[in-house]
Amino acid sequence: MKTYRDIVGDGGSDIAGQVARRQARMRARMAAVASTLAVMSGKGGVGKSAVTANLAAALAMRGHRIGVLDADINGPCMARMLGVEGQALTLGAGGVTPAVGPLGMKVVSMDLLLAPDAAPVEWDAPAPPQPHVWRGAIEAAALQEFFTDTVWGTLDFLLVDLPPGPERFPGLHSLLPRCDGAIVVTIPSGMALLTVKRSIASAHSLKVKLLGVVENMSSYLCPRCGAPQPLFRDEGDAGRQALGASILGRIPFDPRIARCCDQGVPFVLAHRQTQAGRAFMDIAAQVSGLRIAQEEGR
């Protein structure tokens, strides 16, 4: 009796062909994107999305063509942070036209597809019990559509803002034809450093270039003397060295960052000359330089 591998094809559904064609569409779309960078964090609440929004803006301020894909399907916030909330995604001949934010940044987020009633993401599923069985699959397929069907055009950088958790990066990596680099965002607390190690290990194990770690809320500026003071119990350089990754930059805490996020104005655009603003610009300069070095190496 024949076994599974003795039979060529699947009798007519051509599921493998359907998947292959989908992947080919994605490769074609992503061919015009010079660098796809994942921004991830080991745990939530470290300000990853604020860093993504400001890094995107800082790169755009350096003259790069930028796209931002909000990969947080269930907790999207990029549309708000980049000031495109309320814009509608439209259907054109070549696909879906993304929202356009400040400095021409192109943005796609689940937020732009949800009805404006603050309801959570709900999938039309006739099998409500045990949604964990299929929810991961549908979220991955949705993400794949965001990459493939959006008319990104030619981009220098596509920043992908991942939801928190070290397991998210391998999931993204398996979808993409190529991931050119990863940035890990953390805060200088012992707990955050512990979990961020897992994210770094994940990038290393997938052989993805780790551009470095962004230490957010690294300090606060004393309102009296302006000197930086630690905001968390600092683990010091020994803790950072144990990460096994270079520090791409340190962003001091500045309450205006959160306010700007709420107002949909990138902080770095409004407050470039502040210490935090300069830190974002410095990180952008390094990321920009890494891309140039990468191109020269090709």
């Binding site: 439209t90 879906v96 732009l112 597809l113 949800l114 709900e122 999938w123 039309d124 559509e145």
Partner: peptide, 23 residues
Amino acid sequence: HAPFELVRERLANSRLMWTEEAE
């Protein structure tokens, strides 16, 4: 294949998308 077809078909509380011409 239609753009965002899975999201538009399966997202229960989605906005209706407009074509560029309709917009």
